[in-house]
Design a protein around this nucleic acid. Sequence first.
DNA 1: CTACAAAGTAGGCACTGACAACTATGTTGT
DNA 2: ACAACATAGTTGTCAGTGCCTACTTTGTAG
Lengths: 201, 201
Amino acid sequence: MPEATPERPYHHGNLRTALLDAAERGLREHGADQLSLRDLAREIGVSHAAPRRHFPDRQALLDALAVSGFARLDAGLRTALAEAAEEFPARVRATMTAYTRFATENAALLELMYSSKHRPGAERIVEAAEAPFRLMDDLIRQGQAQGALEAGDPERIGIVLFATLQGIATIINGNIVKPELLDGLVETAVDQFLRGARPLG
Amino acid sequence: MPEATPERPYHHGNLRTALLDAAERGLREHGADQLSLRDLAREIGVSHAAPRRHFPDRQALLDALAVSGFARLDAGLRTALAEAAEEFPARVRATMTAYTRFATENAALLELMYSSKHRPGAERIVEAAEAPFRLMDDLIRQGQAQGALEAGDPERIGIVLFATLQGIATIINGNIVKPELLDGLVETAVDQFLRGARPLG
DNA sequence: CTACAAAGTAGGCACTGACAACTATGTTGT
DNA sequence: ACAACATAGTTGTCAGTGCCTACTTTGTAG
């Protein structure tokens, strides 16, 4: 006998996605600490044990958020690059702006993304992080090919650039420096990078 | 009637300090998430409600850890600078090394230090963070006075330098890049900074 | 249509942070 | 010396959480 009000079918259909969506909202609004599996289940309208079918434990949910965070970051950087001009400085500027934009608009998520530690199961996160790192790597190689950058291990240079962005975002997100300084800091960082890594002579 | 075994006097004497010490060990060994007030109380040998006399809630304990973290970081940077030579590049190198050393040896603590958000009560943390920032600021001014750095807002330059260090540490701690790259990254960052921020001509 | 896998439910357990009420100890004024 | 008070502990309780086990409902394949 089918229920008269089929609003909540026994099988939700895509609980996993619903959980991730709700979790991301909760993460943004109340932080990772306040994120409760039971809360999410209530909000979605399933029983408290339902999430377990899709995420073996709380950490798995957080890890999944981190992975999707890196994917979204990568996508953001790529579209920014696609829309940027051909000259190397413009491309660097576009990438850096896109990164810090993502990082400050998704502060809590960013923390999750870099809190992997060596915990078992974090390989997925490290894997997901590779995409944006490769992008940065390619950018550096391109700059070297255009003669805008000195020769040298492109990976190392790319990581330092990446780190600078990440550091600026962390300091802003941590409220250690005033948010309105963001643009100026990025500008300074870009200038110094372009000057510091250009070929001598 | 005094107890026959006065091993645990009613008043612990310095529970607050004992809690902070135990918390820092726990933080280092098992991470902030696993830190439990009741666990700490058990470990120290007081009742589960005793910590409440010294920290109104769990977050207050974590905040206190963050504050003392900044103090220790500041102290570390100052001793490193005191032992460094007079030339500006050597001083920069010493500072950067000291920072990343502290940051990688206190990974979980570092996360706490920068996770302040705008949560009420975080003012203490922001305040504590000012000391190392001022130190960085002074260093930059010194470099400008020695003619090793271009003119320009020393605060902004100092923050970018600080951010770079913080970013490198985060990426290493997050296991995104291999730890053995640390020294090389710092070296690259120092070189780029000195080249990127020196006066033109 | 029947067997089975997938997805959700119900209930329970140990643990946690926060709170209230009470008690032991240290300190201070008279 | 001692009463009054502040400080720093104690026990007990509560709601909430993550995780686990056992059970039920639904979808699907043989």
